[in-house]
């Protein structure tokens, strides 16, 4: 555990050194709730990642987007009132590899995080309906169900302070990640029959602290993980995860 703390500390220091801040508007990202910003947010992440990393900051507003791929050394900060809104068509979601699809997706990246008092809002039942319509028409095949956040094979991941709302399926999927800190998250999929909380598989060193999870299906799926710690993480019924 001590080793682990030291390791975390060094990560924290190194991240702070390169913490250049960029505001969303610099990249032409629109807060009007109707402009689909996928291309611009992705360009911003790529640009920041290519320029020694930093933080992309979203202030109050609704930022509509399809899948964006988070890259190493890039953090996203959602200020209070900022809402990253997931687009409502399954076509708007893709995955860089076999990983689960999501609004924010990362594969094989390190030193990434999302924090602040803002919201990541899925399209919930609307997306589910759109997906079922396309499946019934035979236009799409069964594919992974788009979640809010999905990280695969990432290292040094932190999520802090966020509201993860209205996710149609898994709010947060962690696959074979190492050193994951989840703190002060409010996960809510109240009206969505398939809403699921956190799914962690094959991860090492996962820290859950001060979580509130209200979903219709499993609040926490914990499979083949090592070193999971849970502090004050409860469901809407007051039950510990």
């Amino acid at each position: 555990m001590k080793k682990y703390q030291l390791f975390l500390l060094s990560v924290f220091v190194s991240l702070n050194v390169s913490a250049n801040e960029y505001t969303a508007s610099f990249f032409g990202i629109k807060s009007d709730g109707i402009t689909n910003n996928t291309g611009s947010i992705q360009k911003a992440i790529d640009y920041i990642s290519e320029h020694r990393g930093g933080t992309l900051v979203f202030y109050v507003g609704r930022y509509l987007t399809g899948t964006i791929h988070l890259k190493s050394n890039v953090k996203i900060r959602l200020e209070e009132g900022a809402v990253l809104v997931g687009a409502s068509s399954p076509y708007d979601y893709n995955s860089s590899t076999q990983g689960a699809r999501a609004i924010i997706e990362a594969n094989g990246q390190s030193n990434i995080g999302i924090y602040g008092k803002g919201v990541i809002e899925g399209s919930g039942n609307t997306l589910i309906k759109n997906m079922n319509d396309l499946l019934n028409a035979g236009y799409i095949k069964k594919n992974s169900e788009p979640g809010l956040i999905s990280f695969t094979n990432c290292m040094n991941v932190s999520l802090n302070g966020l509201h993860l709302w209205n996710g149609p399926y898994n709010a947060l999927t962690l696959t074979e990640c190492k050193t994951v800190n989840l703190e002060a998250l409010d996960i809510n999929g109240r009206n969505i029959p398939s809403s699921t909380g956190i799914v962690a598989k094959g991860c090492k060193w996962v820290n859950l602290k001060d979580l509130f999870v209200e979903v219709k299906k499993e609040p926490f799926i914990n499979q083949n993980n090592q070193f999971v710690t849970i502090q004050n993480a409860i469901t809407n019924k007051g039950v510990t995860l």
Binding site: G66, Y91, Y139
Partner: peptide, 23 residues
């Protein structure tokens, strides 16, 4: 429209149109 495209002058349809073409 059956693929979920919106003709509202607002929604970005690229991914949906591409999905339809591929299908």
């Amino acid at each position: 429209l059956d693929f979920g495209a919106k003709n509202d002058g607002i929604t970005l349809n690229s991914a949906i149109i591409q999905g339809a073409i591929d299908y």
